Computed example of a mutant assay.
Amino acid sequence: MKRVGVKTAVLSITAPGACILPSRHARAQLARQLNEYSANLRDKDPKSFAFFVSLPDILDTDDALAEIAYGLDVLHADGITLFTRYGPSNTYLGHPDVEPIWAELNRRACVVFVHPTHPVDTNPVNSKLPQPAIDYPHETTRAAMDMITNGTRLKYPACQVILSHAGGALPYIISRVTTPMRKAADFAVSHRMGTTHDKAMESFRSFHFDLALSSSPQVLDMLLKMVPLDHILYGSDFPYAPITAYPAFLESLESYEMDTELRNMINYGNAMKLFPRLARQRNGTL
């Protein structure tokens, strides 16, 4: 869940979503049920709720495209939820098999919320570390790097892509990809990765980053230095985290020193630019 205004939240069904079911028909059916249920919640209180479309496995291309059309054109959702990877071959979001989905979302200039699914290796590091602690942020990092190195973000720039949890480890490790590319002598590195320093950084800065469970001073310091200020969004991750986590992360965000203009941008202003319907509704023009 993402707060985009004083009293408005965007509802998103995160992993495993409809992909949990084994058959193509069942996945498509469950995605439709999730979307109609979410639309019904929104319609009961449109000033408080919006929602992102849930999709079946996006490798079921025709089914996914049909649900995109239904969710956006019929149910009037405000965006789409994608997971970091799909299918038994672990297809991440920069793979050519996903391009029909990106092409359609780009045509619609859609807001896309990327949320991690479970890691390929589901064995925990140890019994004290549940998957969301480290594996989910790493999944987001893998998907984002896949999109950067395969040129997905530059090829489909009309999509406004939100990475959950401050982009995982992406802000921390992006220099591992881009710094060697500054040197002409490292042509081989650029050739292998299929991009350049400037293109990689342009792709990186094109993402939007939500602060769900990611509002420590260290994270905020890095984001504020590395990404456009209008690409940072409040996020809560409610109700997936332990109930004690929310006040702790909110306290970190509220106690971080920033001016009122920036705080208002992060709390709701930036999101209102992404969701003009909500902005119109908040201003009483809808």
Rank of each mutant, 00 (worst) to 15 (best):
residue 1 M to N: 03
residue 4 V to C: 13
residue 5 G to Q: 01
residue 7 K to Y: 12
residue 11 L to S: 07
residue 14 T to R: 00
residue 17 G to I: 10
residue 20 I to D: 13
residue 20 I to M: 14
residue 22 P to Q: 03
residue 25 H to F: 07
residue 26 A to Q: 13
residue 28 A to E: 12
residue 34 L to T: 04
residue 34 L to M: 14
residue 34 L to H: 11
residue 39 A to M: 00
residue 40 N to Q: 12
residue 53 V to D: 03
residue 56 P to A: 03
residue 59 L to N: 00
residue 63 D to R: 05
residue 66 A to D: 14
residue 68 I to M: 06
residue 71 G to R: 04
residue 79 G to H: 05
residue 81 T to W: 01
residue 81 T to H: 01
residue 81 T to D: 00
residue 89 S to M: 10
residue 89 S to N: 15
residue 91 T to Y: 08
residue 92 Y to K: 04
residue 92 Y to M: 01
residue 93 L to V: 02
residue 94 G to N: 01
residue 98 V to K: 05
residue 98 V to R: 08
residue 99 E to M: 07
residue 99 E to F: 15
residue 101 I to E: 07
residue 104 E to W: 00
residue 106 N to T: 00
residue 106 N to D: 15
residue 111 V to Y: 03
residue 113 F to N: 11
residue 115 H to I: 09
residue 119 P to I: 09
residue 119 P to W: 07
residue 121 D to G: 06
residue 122 T to R: 14
residue 123 N to C: 11
residue 124 P to F: 04
residue 127 S to Q: 13
residue 128 K to C: 11
residue 135 D to K: 06
residue 136 Y to R: 05
residue 141 T to S: 05
residue 141 T to Q: 01
residue 148 I to C: 05
residue 149 T to Y: 12
residue 152 T to D: 06
residue 152 T to C: 04
residue 154 L to A: 14
residue 155 K to P: 07
residue 155 K to L: 09
residue 160 Q to I: 01
residue 161 V to P: 00
residue 165 H to S: 05
residue 171 P to M: 11
residue 174 I to D: 04
residue 175 S to R: 13
residue 175 S to I: 05
residue 182 R to I: 06
residue 182 R to N: 12
residue 193 M to G: 00
residue 205 R to S: 01
residue 207 F to K: 04
residue 208 H to L: 12
residue 213 L to S: 09
residue 214 S to V: 09
residue 215 S to D: 00
residue 216 S to M: 12
residue 217 P to S: 02
residue 219 V to G: 03
residue 220 L to A: 07
residue 221 D to Q: 06
residue 226 M to W: 06
residue 230 D to P: 02
residue 231 H to F: 00
residue 233 L to G: 07
residue 236 S to R: 09
residue 237 D to Q: 03
residue 242 P to V: 09
residue 242 P to A: 12
residue 243 I to W: 13
residue 249 F to P: 00
residue 254 E to Y: 14
residue 262 L to E: 02
residue 263 R to Y: 08
residue 267 N to Y: 15
residue 268 Y to I: 01
residue 269 G to E: 01
residue 270 N to G: 07
residue 272 M to A: 15
residue 278 L to D: 05
residue 281 Q to T: 09
residue 282 R to F: 14
